[in-house]
Amino acid sequence: MLQIKNLSASIDNKKILKGLNLEVKAGEVHAIMGPNGSGKSTLSQLLAGKDGYTLDGGEVLFEGKDLLRLAPEERASLGLFLAFQYPVEIPGVSNLYFLKSAYNALRKKRGEEELDAVDFMELVKEKSKLVEMNETLLTRPVNEGFSGGEKKRNEILQMIVLEPKLCILDETDSGLDIDALKVVSKGINAARSKDRAIILITHYQRLLNYCEPDFVHVLYNGKILKSGGKELAFELEKHGYGWILES
């Protein structure tokens, strides 16, 4: 589904990614771990299409298409979804309206009929139960005045409503208490399917206790240093990132 080949990118002339390789197939769950500054967020933002990065080399294929040439909305309509590390607040736009606009924009792009307000409301109510989200958060402006945990749940809600093919979760577990982490994990696990791939970008092994990955990669200094199964995460937790550098 996703092939990242020898990807190098910089921001303000500072090299962040230095020849990154990764292949993700449908049905797989990958965890990318790494210390601060290793390039985790750059990778996720670059894949989603954020401006401001210079591509120094390499390529990214998403379902065979040259992903980096596409506008963010085109990537979304192909089925790519990024759960933001820091979701933005949008005053004046209700959460429900935003979600419906996104949902219908994607349907329109696929040539499907748009869903009316009543049917959409039903769909969202059903899905928001899964992430235990208070219904009042739907009528409030997007993320405005939401707690950290509510913002992350809102990201997961968007994910399970929009049903993307590839979900990239950028530190969705950071700053969550254990109860919120469980709820978010439940949402992620519900999204697992044989047609969908998930990339969990995280600092902490804790999330992986609830969402078991098929593969774990260690990102360090702009490159994947080591890849392995879920046991790699436990090793990291035990020995720290220094252990990878030494071995």
């Binding site: 506008a71 979804f81 736009v93 994607l106």
Partner: peptide, 26 residues
């Protein structure tokens, strides 16, 4: 706000529509 615009577009909302949405919200 370019970050907000990017957020909307990353959810599949085309650029022009996203801009319109933000102006009307304002």
């Amino acid at each position: 706000d370019q970050d907000v615009l990017f957020y909307l577009r990353s959810r599949g909302i085309p650029k022009e529509e996203a801009q319109k949405l933000l102006i009307v919200a304002f």
